[in-house]
């Protein structure tokens, strides 16, 4: 999957998980800027990303995913 496809899939997952929330997907989007991305929202997001990319994150990675950018970096580096 190229970077473009990774980004598109991540954006789709965000749209699904945070459906009904008022936000725009971008590299700058973070847990600080999206209110629904709380601890439970994070668990759902991780679950949806793992399913979409058929991968499994470590606890350390999950804790590092405080915004869109680290997620894109991890998934582009080899999902």
């Amino acid at each position: 999957m190229n970077d473009h496809a990774v980004r598109a899939t991540v954006a789709r997952v965000f749209a699904e998980v945070f459906e009904g929330e008022d936000f725009a997907f971008s590299d700058q989007l973070s847990r600080e800027t999206l209110k629904a991305w709380d601890s439970l929202g994070h668990i759902r997001l991780i679950g949806a990303l793992e399913e979409a990319f058929d991968t499994r994150f470590t606890i350390e990675e999950i804790e590092r995913f405080t915004g869109v950018t680290p997620i894109l970096v991890r998934l582009s580096a080899g999902a």
């Binding site: 601890s39 439970l40 668990i43 759902r44 679950g47 399913e51 994150f57 470590t58 606890i59 999950i62």
Partner: peptide, 14 residues
């Protein structure tokens, strides 16, 4: 186990 440690989910989210 990750979801248990992080969020005390009763079973895997899926």
């Amino acid at each position: 186990e990750r979801q248990w440690h992080m969020a005390r989910l009763p079973c895997a989210l899926a």
